[in-house]
């Protein structure tokens, strides 16, 4: 086969493939909405951070300028209840970044995505992550015996075979974890998902 013939075939193949692509609706609207919502989330986060800094600065100012009120009790002092101790310990064990290994009913974990679909839990009761192409965030609580509840405030903007972390977290009523593995269980005891620690 000559080079020219191959090149002509290539042009025809690309044209045919491109012509087969179905019409993608409202690309402009989806792009602008996605960016504006991301900007709004950034503004809210920035505002919250500024408010937190202002509070901390205010406390520091009052302590340094002879406030007559008694100093606040240190947070890390003696635990007041067994429940609190267990919850903190479990949240600390959960802290870190996890990648999905198995999600029941979800079969395309290994498909390539723009971002690594991970979940990161923090000991302060917040979590962040990515479903593969959208940022996710929320809060969680852990009870004395691993009872788990969560709230997600993320929103899916881009389709990419999104990993349904939020569905896992919403379905989970109990968790168990060791150094390397995190398991979520539904209310009836069925295992919902398995994650592995990345770091």
């Amino acid at each position: 086969m000559s080079k020219t013939e191959l090149e002509e075939d290539l042009r025809a193949t690309f044209e045919r493939a491109a012509a087969s692509v179905p019409l993608a609706p409202d690309l402009a609207g989806r792009a602008t909405t996605g960016v504006r919502q991301a900007q709004r989330r950034t503004w809210i986060a920035s505002g919250a951070a500024a408010a937190a800094i202002a509070v901390v600065a205010g406390v520091g100012f009052s302590l340094n300028h002879g406030s007559t009120s008694p100093p606040p009790t240190p947070v890390a002092s003696k635990p007041t209840a067994a429940v609190t101790t267990a919850a903190v310990t479990t949240a600390q064990a959960l802290a870190g970044t996890w990648r999905p290994v198995k999600l029941n009913g979800f079969t395309t974990l290994k498909v390539g995505r723009p971002d690594d679909p991970t979940l990161t839990f923090r000991s302060d009761g917040t979590w962040t992550g990515s479903d593969g192409c959208n940022s996710l965030a929320g809060t969680f609580t852990i009870g004395q015996r691993g009872e788990f509840t969560s709230h997600a405030d993320g929103q899916r903007l881009i389709e990419c075979g999104n990993v349904p972390h939020t569905a896992v977290l919403a379905a989970a009523r109990r968790i168990s974890t060791d150094q390397a593995t995190l398991r979520f269980y539904a209310g009836d005891g069925r295992e919902v998902a398995i994650y592995a620690r990345t770091r």
Binding site: A24, R30, T32, G34, V35, I158, E159, G161
Partner: peptide, 17 residues
């Protein structure tokens, strides 16, 4: 196709920014 639409949207979002 799925990835093609995502790529187009990523490009448009970055362009819009």
């Amino acid at each position: 196709y799925q990835r093609a639409e995502d790529l187009a949207q990523i490009a448009l979002m970055q362009a819009f920014r």
